[in-house]
């Protein structure tokens, strides 16, 4: 669980006013507002939802059995089983946020830890860690997921674990490369001649330089993890129906893509907005945390 706080606590070690500078950027502010909206909607789902999310409504389908278009009592239409899309989207936000932030956070955290350790220690420890990373990269993610799902009973937490296990490798590779390059820099050598411990160098001098990379991968990872969860759901090893997630709403309804496109576009847009919001905040965070970029306040 060490992954998620990494990203969020990023501004804490920076000095007072980092938050103020972040809020002064209109795009970052927009991103923060969007994230707040999604999180708020997920928390307040029971009060905002117009129908129970799993309820199949008798009047939710046309006489021919097709989903209802948006309008009337159905704010965003109904899905193929006559469930209210708006309500499912609200509850689905809970699942998707959990996956996108927690699973992704663990993945980025594990990747950073592995990459940093391997890049700093080098030698046989580094070789073993990086060859293991290569192995994981080559291993089919879905096969791994199916194996794990066969061993454990599928649940939200297993899905989060599987996604974390699959997604840490890219971060590990990139962090490894950057760490080896940074470790050669003079200011790291200068720290060592002062007698600074490895832990101190890693925490105070190496990690701050890795934040930009970590933040970019963390924000990019949000949309990929949400979609990976959808794939797993589609294979029946993800979040189990009838629990809603943005990913499985898309997959359940994709057969109706021609006649009821909103069933795919609306949850798709939700994923897009969430990923975009995190990207905007991540970009701004990166700039705010770099003192050499601070000329243009």
């Amino acid at each position: 669980m060490s992954g998620a706080p990494f990203v969020i606590a990023a501004s804490a070690p920076a000095e007072r006013g980092a938050l103020t500078r972040l809020l002064r950027r209109p795009l970052a502010l927009l991103g923060l507002v969007l994230i707040a909206l999604v999180v708020g909607a997920a928390i307040a789902a029971p009060w905002l939802a117009t129908y129970p999310p799993d309820q199949q409504n008798f009047d939710g389908l046309t006489l021919e059995g097709a989903p209802m278009p948006p309008g009337g009592p159905w704010l965003l239409g109904t899905d193929l089983l006559g469930r209210d899309l708006y309500s499912r989207l609200l509850y689905g936000a809970r699942t998707s946020l959990l996956i996108g932030i927690i699973a992704n956070g663990i993945a980025v955290g594990v990747g950073t830890l592995v990459g940093l350790t391997a890049g700093w220690l080098r030698g046989w420890v580094g070789t073993v860690l990086m060859r293991f990373t290569d192995l994981m990269m080559a291993f089919p993610a879905l096969l791994l997921a199916i194996c794990l799902a066969a061993i454990f009973r599928p649940s939200l937490w297993i899905v989060a674990l599987v996604i974390a296990l699959v997604n840490w490798v890219q971060t590990a590779r990139i962090v490894y490369t950057e760490t080896t390059a940074l470790a050669e820099r003079d200011f790291i050598a200068a720290e060592r001649t002062l007698g600074a411990s490895s832990l101190r160098i890693l925490w105070h001098h190496l990690l701050p330089h890795l934040w930009p990379t970590i933040i970019v991968w963390a924000t990019l990872g949000i949309s990929t993890t949400v979609l990976l969860e959808a794939t797993l759901s589609y294979l029946g090893i993800g979040v189990q129906p009838p629990t809603a997630s943005w990913g499985n709403i898309i997959f359940e309804n994709q057969t109706y893509f021609q006649s009821a496109p909103w069933l795919v576009f609306i949850p798709g847009a939700a994923i897009l907005v969430l990923a975009l919001a995190f990207n905007l905040v991540g970009d701004a965070l990166r700039e705010v945390m770099d003192p050499t970029q601070r000329g243009q306040r």
Binding site: D186, E191, T193, G195, H205, H209, M289, D290
Partner: peptide
């Protein structure tokens, strides 16, 4: 024993305040 490097721009961590960098040996010890 202390060392002064060739390129001062490379030997100072660009993300730290210079006061903290100069105080760092004292913190470490």
């Amino acid at each position: 024993v202390q060392m002064v490097f060739q390129d001062p721009a490379a030997a100072l961590n660009p993300r730290k305040r210079v006061g903290d960098l100069v105080a760092e040996p004292l913190v470490i010890h």
